[in-house]
Amino acid sequence: MASQGTKRSYEQMETDGERQNATEIRASVGKMIDGIGRFYIQMCTELKLSDYEGRLIQNSLTIERMVLSAFDERRNKYLEEHPSAGKDPKKTGGPIYKRVDRKWMRELVLYDKEEIRRIWRQANNGDDATAGLTHMMIWHSNLNDTTYQRTRALVRTGMDPRMCSLMQGSTLPRRSGAAGAAVKGVGTMVMELIRMIKRGINDRNFWRGENGRKTRSAYERMCNILKGKFQTAAQRAMMDQVRESRNPGNAEIEDLIFLARSALILRGSVAHKSCLPACVYGPAVASGYDFEKEGYSLVGIDPFKLLQNSQVYSLIRPNENPAHKSQLVWMACNSAAFEDLRVLSFIRGTKVSPRGKLSTRGVQIASNENMDAMESSTLELRSRYWAIRTRSGGNTNQQRASAGQISVQPAFSVQRNLPFDKPTIMAAFTGNTEGRTSDMRAEIIRMMEGAKPEEMSFQGRGVFELSDERAANPIVPSFDMSNEGSYFFGDNAEEYDN
């Protein structure tokens, strides 16, 4: 993207840094990872977990959730003011799984939030270390993106479920800051804005008074975040219109849905970061690795190297396929839920299948599930090659597409044709070009129609051997075009429920 120079890199967003050079960025990201790792080690000690239990991804998720809940100030305040039966607002906890007599047992633990905050700050040299908290939120978000298709949420806001490739980060909490905003897809931002506008339509006082002023500035800020994701002048001009509207209503909703559809071809720039579970960072720190000293990046080879040398386990339900569970977590670790499966298959070195073909449910185990038949197995999170994460949407291309997802959002900077089903997408653009945004709409449609099938995206960008740390010898991959490109292809993934 041309304006790259004016933006802070995501590592800076990730670490609240002012302008830093590459070495400083690597050190501050490393410091953040160190903090998460030290916190995780301490929690495993508190909970008396064995090494194996500490490497269980379900335990990692519970521990991450506990610290996120302990620092969720708004919710904590709300819980104190609106006490609900049987919930102690000062405590947080969740299921911890232990191996007892050759069987997995679930144990519900409860801790004072104050105590968890103390352990977290102690692991982070006394700081609140917001960057580390956001990092864990993005890992949870990436896992949700890989596990669930947001059909219901899309339909509720009037969008087409086939636009799911635009929904990265749709389950990120509001408090995820600049680093969170960077990884949100165009569809996620559109959905947040539509929800806001709908509230304004239904509630006369939404934009009024002292609160209304705050609401208005939040609305304009979200519009600017979305505008910054678009790469064409016409899309940005249309966002200006939406932002400046005196009284946002149905016309703005129409414009936003139009823009979301246009992003299936004229893709937005959305950041991709490899955020790993805390149970990967903990053992690495415990083994003596100093992330701050060595430096770390979320968008280069580092996460690949770390996963190459990590042992992570997962509980497996009786009829689940461990290899499929591994694929789910591998995609989440690489922030690749909406990437082209052919690119992923090449990088991973084994075939990556669409969601609907995987015999696996989510990673988390519900409290009512029976533990008797639970097994555990090693997650295979290694890769054959590594590639640089991208934040450009890439230019655009036609490809055989599917009944489910009709476009992709690249996660890796790797040369390819970008699949999208042009006739299906263009069919949504018939007729409606009147109104105050008509010239911009016409211009956007013209650009979409001009998108050429034979153009290559990320020209000359390749993948790298894991021994090639400096990215000196790019390998331009070859793809098996007979395979499906979309992950949520004609899909039956479970729906995400809060």
Rank of each mutant, 00 (worst) to 15 (best):
E115D: 12
W104V: 10
A403S: 08
I347S: 04
K273N: 03
F346R: 15
A233L: 04
T15K: 07
R461P: 15
W207S: 05
G282S: 05
A471W: 10
R199H: 05
K357M: 11
G228Y: 10
Y97E: 13
E14R: 00
W386E: 05
N309A: 00
K113Y: 10
V242H: 10
R106F: 10
R267T: 12
L264G: 14
A129P: 01
N319W: 07
Y496I: 03
S438H: 15
P354F: 10
Y219R: 04
E46T: 02
R389G: 15
S176N: 06
Y296C: 08
S262A: 13
D145C: 10
D421N: 05
S60W: 02
I33E: 06
G180D: 05
E115Y: 11
S176T: 09
L379E: 04
R441Q: 11
R199C: 13
A401G: 14
K273M: 09
C164H: 05
R204D: 12
A271G: 02
F489M: 10
D255G: 05
R382W: 06
N417V: 15
T433E: 01
D497E: 01
D34C: 04
G249F: 10
E294F: 02
R261G: 06
L56T: 02
E115A: 03
L307V: 04
A428G: 02
A181Y: 12
E14V: 12
F258S: 06
M43G: 09
G212Q: 06
I316E: 10
L226C: 11
R342I: 04
Q149K: 12
E115H: 05
R213I: 10
F464P: 00
A22H: 00
F412Q: 12
S326C: 14
Q58F: 09
S402C: 03
P318C: 15
R317C: 05
K273D: 09
Q235K: 06
E434C: 00
D240G: 02
Q149N: 04
A2K: 10
I257K: 12
S326I: 02
P161L: 12
Y148I: 06
I201S: 00
D112C: 15
S84E: 15
S176R: 04
N202P: 04
S297D: 13
I475Q: 09
S457P: 13
P322Y: 01
K91D: 13
Y10N: 00
M105R: 01
P477V: 11
F412K: 01
D372W: 06
A366R: 10
Y385N: 14
R55D: 03
Q20D: 09
K103L: 01
R99W: 10
I36Q: 07
P173D: 02
A182L: 01
P410K: 10
D255E: 13
G158D: 13
R75G: 15
T378D: 09
L110Q: 05
E24H: 03
A493C: 10
M13K: 15
F412T: 12
M32Q: 10
S165K: 05
G490E: 09
P474N: 09
P173A: 00
A271M: 09
K91I: 06
A332G: 12
D16Y: 05
E14F: 01
M238Y: 10
R348T: 02
K98L: 00
G209K: 11
I36P: 02
D421S: 01
V352G: 08
E18Q: 08
M189Y: 12
S274T: 03
T396R: 14
Q231R: 14
S326L: 11
K98T: 00
Y496Q: 13
Y496N: 14
T360Y: 07
V186A: 04
N76C: 05
L276I: 12
N21D: 04
G268Q: 09
T437Q: 07
R204W: 15
S478I: 06
Y487C: 15
V67F: 10
A2I: 10
R102A: 15
A178P: 13
E252C: 08
S345N: 12
E64F: 09
Q398E: 13
A70N: 09
Y313G: 00
W120R: 14
D101I: 03
D88F: 13
G169W: 10
Y281K: 09
Q405I: 10
R389N: 11
Y148S: 01
D340H: 02
G30N: 00
I347C: 12
H272R: 12
P283C: 00
D480G: 13
M191G: 07
R470C: 08
S50P: 03
S314E: 05
M238Q: 14
N202Y: 03
T215P: 03
L307I: 02
W386Q: 12
S438A: 15
T360N: 03
Q12S: 00
K325G: 11
E380N: 10
A428L: 03
G460T: 09
V363R: 13
R384T: 01
S377M: 09
L418Q: 13
I475N: 05
E380D: 15
I194F: 12
Y496P: 11
P89C: 00
Q58I: 07
K31C: 14
R75A: 06
S413W: 10
I301T: 14
Y111P: 08
F71P: 12
A123H: 09
P95W: 09
M447V: 15
M426P: 01
I425P: 08
R74F: 05
S482P: 10
G93N: 06
G132W: 06
T45I: 03
K227Q: 02
S413A: 02
Q12A: 13
D302K: 05
M66S: 06
V100M: 06
G17M: 05
L306P: 08
G268D: 12
L172M: 15
N125G: 02
L344R: 06
T147R: 04
